[in-house]
Design a protein around this nucleic acid. Structure first.
Length: 271
DNA sequence: AGGCGTACCTGAGGGC
DNA sequence: TGCCCTCAGGTACGCC
């Protein structure tokens, strides 16, 4: 489910809801979803105070007062839901339950069991594996051009590679390419200046607009309060197979790239 | 190094 | 109804 705008929305919600709270107990019911193994994990987080909550790529970063971090990756269907004290029903499919000393709690739930929660020591260099933040100063047009240089992979596949640019997923990769008028199968390294600049601008614009709408809820994405996003009403390409392109009037097509559905307009994504 | 296919899971929806 | 197929917002891994 969640890409950069959804993860950003969840992290902001968590920051408001759990910063300053102390973890009273942790219960892991699906061992493979946490690292280190459950009993170590549960013991380690008990008594920890939540210092801050942020985002890096698609990771939710929960900073603890000890200097350690709780990294959460939601993969396809993961959810982080905060429930106030006195809530009766646990979020369905809860696999990790953190209860705070004020009796509120955070459920890490996941139907498909792909999500992961990892406790990281202060000096562990996990950040090295994650690419540039597309909404940061660092993501200049020059940096983008350097990343693209020499790459033969289709631009759509390149945009999904988290080691280069962190945070785009299938929805926003499709939307950015549509907005820039770039064909998804185009070899990344063959894109020249004008199109490169349009794509750079489109990536930032689509992510900013999606954050403003609190993300895209096609099927089951909800934020930390269980609320849906609104960007699904503004999609121009993703999921619109057979519908009319809002720019040129031709039909949106669905093709496959790197085993992922890819929605685009052959009428106006020609470059 | 980089590109490609497969594996990991459950549930929803369509066709028959 | 029910069965069988395909599809899903993501990444890790092994192979060439």
């Amino acid at each position: 489910l969640p890409e950069l705008p959804e993860v950003e929305t969840i992290a902001n919600g968590l920051a408001r809801a759990i910063v300053g709270k102390t973890i009273d107990s942790a219960v892991v019911s699906l061992p493979k979803m946490v690292f280190p193994e459950p009993s170590t994990f549960e013991r380690a987080v008990c008594g920890e105070c939540v210092h801050a909550v942020g985002r890096r790529g698609k990771f939710i970063v929960i900073s603890l007062a000890s200097g350690r971090f709780l990294l959460v990756h939601l993969r396809m269907t993961g959810r982080l839901i905060v429930q106030p004290a006195g809530t009766i029903d646990l979020e369905p499919y809860t696999k990790v339950l953190l209860t705070f000393t004020d009796s509120s709690r955070m459920c890490f739930a996941d139907v498909r069991q792909f999500g992961r929660m990892r406790l990281v020591e202060p000096e562990e260099p996990w950040v090295a594996e994650v690419g540039v933040e597309p909404l940061s100063e660092e993501f200049s047009i020059e940096r983008f051009a350097a990343l693209l240089a020499g790459r033969t992979t289709p631009i759509k596949v390149f945009l999904l590679d988290q080691r280069r640019i962190a945070g785009l997923g299938n929805i926003y990769a499709c939307e950015a390419l549509w907005e820039a008028g770039v064909k998804p199968s185009r070899p990344a390294g063959s894109i020249r200046r004008p199109a490169q600049q349009r794509l750079h601008a489109a990536i930032q614009s689509v992510l900013r607009r999606a954050i403003a709408m609190r993300g895209t809820s096609i099927d089951d994405y909800v934020d930390s309060e269980g609320l849906r996003g609104g960007f699904q009403n503004q999609l121009n390409a993703y999921g619109r197979e057979g519908q009319t392109c809002s720019r040129c009037g031709k039909g949106i097509k669905r093709t496959i790239l790197a085993q992922r559905g890819t929605w685009w307009c052959p009428g106006c994504q020609k470059i």
